[in-house]
Amino acid sequence: MEKLINEFSFGLFFWQLLIFVGLILILKKFAWKPILDALNERENSIKESLESAQRAKDEFSKIKSDNEKILNDAKKERDFLISDAKKTGREIVEDAKNVAKIESEKIIENARESITKEKDLILKDLKFQVIDLSVEIASKILKKELSEKQKQDDYVQKLIDEIELK
């Protein structure tokens, strides 16, 4: 212990204290503070980058699942629309068929009616013509028949015979 105290040099202690405290202060300003700040900043930026990468990954997977959902929805919608359209199409065709049927029946009916009418008219006309022709023919026959006297008398006789007194 005595040797230690004997060896102790106050001058060296003084210089060491002065230089070392100065060194701490100078290094704090010019080295440690900027180095530690830079290290912190770097670590934070690494951390943030990792976090943002994770976020992006999450976002991406979310978007992906969203997309799938949308796609599924769209598929369902499409299927629904297609089936709906098919149904509607069928209905339209059915309706059209019905309408056409009714219409055609109506037309047929009308046609039938008009045909009947026409037929009646034609028949009527035909009757009159037949009557006319018959009358003409009969008159012509009578004229020819009754040109001779005998025949006239015979005919009159016949008519008289036919007539019965009532």
Partner: peptide, 29 residues
């Protein structure tokens, strides 16, 4: 005795070395 002894020279040398080394490191960031 406040002499600039061998040890004091060494302390100054180490101090200057540390200053140059770590200031250089700080600036390189």
């Amino acid at each position: 005795d406040f002499s600039i002894t061998k040890s004091v020279i060494s302390i100054i040398f180490v101090s200057i070395l540390m200053y140059l080394l770590f200031r250089n490191l700080a600036q390189s960031y």
